[in-house]
Design a protein around this nucleic acid. Sequence first.
RNA 1: GUCCUUGUAGUUCAAUGGAUAGAACAGGAGACUUCUAAGCUCUUGAUGUAGGUUCGAUUCCUACCGGGGACACCA
Length: 565
Amino acid sequence: METTIRELITAALKECYGLEGVVFAVERPKELAHGDYATNVALVIAKTLEDRPQACAETLVATLNKNKPADIETISIAGPGFINFSLSATFFTTTLKNIFEQKDRWGSSDLYKGKNILVEHSSPNLFKAFHIGHVMNNAIGESIGRLAKHSGANVRVISFPSDISLGVAKAIFILLEKYGEHFVPTDIATLGDAYVEGTRRYDEDESIHARVKEIADHLYQQTPSPEWTIFSICKDYNIKYFEYITARLGSHFDGYIYESQAGEIGKKIVLEHTPSVFTESEGAIVYVPDEARKDINTAVFINSQGNPTYEAKDIGLLSMKFADQPLDLSIFVTDNQQVPHFQVVLDAAHHINPAWSEKSVHVHHGRMSFKGQKMSSRLGGVPLAADLLETLIAEVQEYTKDRPTADAKENPEAIAIAALKFSILRAMAGKDINFDPETSLSFEGDSGPYLQYSTVRANSILAKAKDWGAELPEGWQTTDLEKILIHFPEVVEHAIQEWSPHFIVTYLLELAQAFNSWYGNTKIIDQSVEQSDAASPYKIALTKAFTQTMQNGLYLLGISVPEKM
RNA sequence: GUCCUUGUAGUUCAAUGGAUAGAACAGGAGACUUCUAAGCUCUUGAUGUAGGUUCGAUUCCUACCGGGGACACCA
């Protein structure tokens, strides 16, 4: 519909003024009272035409009215010269029918139809605990992966685990010392603790440096040794744990690229492009950006020992990503601390293969900060993902305890995860999130559970409903719910264009509020009467359209809908 | 010091340069013999400071102030 209106206006501009190529907006007005679509075109052209915006609007509206399709009811002028379009009732019923036909595909777009998109997110540092920061990355990455799938593209989702590093060598040192060479991990905490302890010991005790470096060498060279054996076992264990925890959060990965693999390839590529792209400086291989680029730092790609740094590893990663398949888009998700790093890497990569930088999209999110002492008193330190989930699940169970409608067997984890993901995805990615469990993880008001609850309640009506139909009842007054419903595909498209899940969140809140408000004032089915009122089938259809839209939207956020709540 | 980023009610978040800056939580009030009250209705309250660009600025530009981050051999 947006496209139709746009074309209509473009034609009118040409007819009235002979104007072409005017940039104007067609959008959903903030106020529903202002109609279903609005355009600022009159305000835009008023200046070049040296006429009053209202006068331009009047001329345009006269022409628009002549060519008006049946789906548009009225075209009016308002405020400083906006042109507002109100749609006919038939358009809403057509949309409802579309929703029932398209089902799970309702709202999906074809922006990247037939393209190949690779999404990388949730890249863990093996041996380091999966904490709340990873949850944030996972929530955003998972949602972007799902948005990509709704863009018509072939999507592959991968993760880039950091496996071998000096830090891991420190952890192995501790494990060998404490448990000997026949160590077999039985829980994830032991590994995380070893990492922390190793880092501390390395800083305090210089006498272990030589041994730790030897361990690191053996890992890099894959030398048969006790450390290599332990490392291999622990790496498998960590990956299994990573898969377990991300599966609980709703993610699945199509594959992994390990940092150790990327490092070797990256080093080779960097050496091949020295000195054409990279230069030698003080024994290291560095990249010096163009002088005009003040926003990019010089960075070391291969250190003076001849080992690839993080930068070279990312060059290797880029090469591997683009080697696997012809990619149209490569999206990777990290926190914004790494923005400067990737600016250097992509700038350097452009000189090696322009596609690597041109087709890469870096989605960066803010970091979680914690409000006061509350978080630590509740969970202790930086919360691990698993601990946070347990705490939330316990709270959900407490909340649900006295609710007659909730099934005792109902999955409280789905509600806990919804609360968590909502608090992350509601905000525009890129900004830091001030994480206050008391308010951020609410089950009431604007929250994940609110969205779930609205859907569950509507579903329970549908379970009782019999006849339904999208035929418009006589004298039906179009509701806010219908007016909001029709915009879902545009919202999804916007979220895809910006790779911003928060547009979906904002929209679903608005939609759920409209439904709840309508629900509070309307009887949808009347069980006391033998035959429901004449409008009932349509109301049920509307409810059905609502739940379908909510389900599709929540899917894009990685949030599932329970049976009962 | 250089560069990047951010600043909106008491709090957590919205607002492609547009119409009266929206929600939610917290605070105050209320309705219901009704399909799930995690709900609904009403209410108090905000654009860091100073300039500039224009028909119009939370949005763009400049300076300042306050957060966050990066600045060569960690990831």
